[in-house]
Amino acid sequence: MSRPLVGALALCLTLLATASPAAVEVRAFDDPALGERYVALAEELRCPQCPNQTIADSDAPIAGDMRERVAALLRDGRSDAEIRDFLVARFGEYVRYDPRPAPRTWPLWGVPAALVAIGALVLAMLVRRRARRVVPLSATERERLAELVSRDEPGATRDRLEVRR
């Protein structure tokens, strides 16, 4: 690789590295563990206004309100599950990027399992069909075969046809 190209690549990589999600405000928590939970929750909850962004990534006003509420609830000593439920109660299951198994979401888990089951079934059928195709020769047939192989005369063709029957 030429020198300018390496330089350009290095520059791109540097820029990529600095373009990490930055919409989350820096929030001060007395306990650093709270700060970690805050970031984890903000990166797991979905902004209800945006088609596909977490509340950490989005700068929509509602995402800001939700981050603020998450921080307030964390300071209140609520658990992660309580905070998720609090937001789901208001904005719906939509805000969860990790949906719970429910009548509406069971296809997410059910379809892959069903596909694996169907695949196993098809495989079993193929294996069985292939096994059925190999029919072992009976004792008389084997004898006749040995006889035919050892012989090399015009009459053999007729006998062979008979064996194949």
Partner: peptide, 8 residues
């Protein structure tokens, strides 16, 4: 609005 789940 937040209690109602209003997002816009």
């Amino acid at each position: 609005g937040f209690e109602l789940g209003v997002y816009g």
